[in-house]
Structure formats: structure tokens, C-alpha cells
Simulated scan of single mutants.
Amino acid sequence: MKITSVFTPLLFMVFSFVSKAQNTDALSNQNTEWLVASLLQNKTEETTILGNPTIVPSLYGDAVAFNGIDDALFLKEMPLKGLDSFTVEMIFKPESNGVFEQRILQIGEITGDRMLLEIRVLDNNWYFDGFVASKGVKLALATEELLHPLGKWYHVAFVVTPNSLTTYVNGKQELHKEYVFNPIEQGQTSIGVRMNKVTWFKGAIYKIQISPEVLKPNQFLKL
């Protein structure tokens, strides 16, 4: 009986530790999904709103319009922590009369390790820019040769693996480059602007999704 009384608490501690570890692993394997309108409608203390981003209707449901001047959301969340592979997707509508450089989504540190979804605007068109900084090495996948008209809804995806980066627009691969990626371990998230509050996005965003795996186009969100 004495042996049992000694080992019972130890066994409880072991099972508790294993259970917590399993729960942590399960959480790390889950997608992060942000319906951006819900971030406004169900604001928590983890969310900071800058300016006056507005809920607007879209073909897909409520979206959020950003004015390109001072509208943004900051989230105390870091969904990329520890991931060596992931896919970031976004359904959005870039509008005219915005600045040339527009940072739409930043996850990670302000100027250290980070990932961004960006666009560049030329006249009435835009082109995609997927950017990563990892261990001091920066790489942007962008070319003005791949233009798309403003004022329409698009799906973009940025696929990151331990040795490559790939961008997609509406399910079609645009750019692919080799790159040694190390997981981003800390930071937060900004939507609608770069984290240091420059290069604001003008347009609307319906949804952002981060998957902790390498997705193929047939697995992307449907536009």
C-alpha cells in the first residue's frame, strides 16, 4: 500500500504531462483561420484596431475594407511559431488609388524574422510579392511582369518549405525560388499595414488562412 501511495502521484504527473504534450501537438497541427470581419465583430483584448476599418459585403460573406491611410488590425498572435513548412492563403480585393508598396499581412517580428504578403501597384494593376526574412537572409518573390487588374477579388497563396518559397495567384503558380528557411519563433500579426505602420493596404480582405503544411493548388481555399 505504501508503494502504491508513492507511485500514484508520480503516475498522475506523467499522464498529465503526456496529455498536455499531446494537446500542444494537436494545436500546432491545426489551421489558423481568420474571417477578418469576425475579428472586428468579436474584438477581444488580443486585437488592436487602428483607424476605422469597415465591414462591407462581398460575394463570399462579410469582408473588411481598409482605406490605405490608417486602417489596420494588430493581433497578439503568432501562428507561424516553430513551423518549418506552411501555406498562407488570402482572399482579398485590392482597390485603385493606393500607394505603390502595400503590405497586407505581416507575421513575426517587426524587422527581424518575419513573413509578409504584399502587393505593388502600377497604374490600374498590381503584382504579388511574397516576402520572408529568416536568420538575417531576406528574399522577396515579385515581378512586375505578372500583373493583375485592380478592383477584383483574388486568392493568393504563399508556400514556404525548409528549402523553397512559391507564390500563387488564383491557383496558378507565379514564382518559385530556393531558400533556406528557419522557423519564425516570436512576434505577432498585423493586417492592413506593415508592423511599423508604413505602406498601408487599400482594399478589402475576406479571409486569411495559415496551414501548417505544404498545400497544393487543389487544396487551396475556393475563390
Rank of each mutant, 00 (worst) to 15 (best):
V6L: 13
F7G: 08
P9M: 10
S16E: 05
S16W: 06
S19E: 08
L27F: 13
L27P: 09
L27R: 14
N29D: 12
E33S: 13
L35Q: 03
L39T: 11
L39R: 12
L40F: 03
T44C: 07
T47C: 01
G51W: 02
Y60N: 08
G61H: 08
G61F: 08
D62N: 15
A65R: 15
G68M: 09
L75G: 03
M78N: 00
L83M: 06
F92D: 00
P94T: 14
N97Q: 12
N97H: 13
F100Q: 04
F100V: 06
I104V: 14
Q106T: 02
E109Y: 00
T111W: 10
D113N: 03
M115R: 09
M115N: 05
L116N: 06
E118H: 12
I119T: 09
N124G: 08
F128E: 00
F131N: 14
F131T: 15
A133L: 14
G136R: 06
A140H: 11
A142R: 15
E144V: 03
E145Y: 06
L146E: 13
L147F: 03
L147H: 04
W153C: 10
Y154M: 04
H155F: 00
V159W: 04
S164E: 00
K172A: 07
Q173S: 06
Q173A: 11
L175S: 08
I184W: 01
E185D: 06
G187C: 04
R194V: 01
K197D: 10
K202G: 04
I205N: 12
E213M: 12
L215T: 02
K216P: 00
P217L: 08
P217A: 05
Q219L: 03
F220S: 02
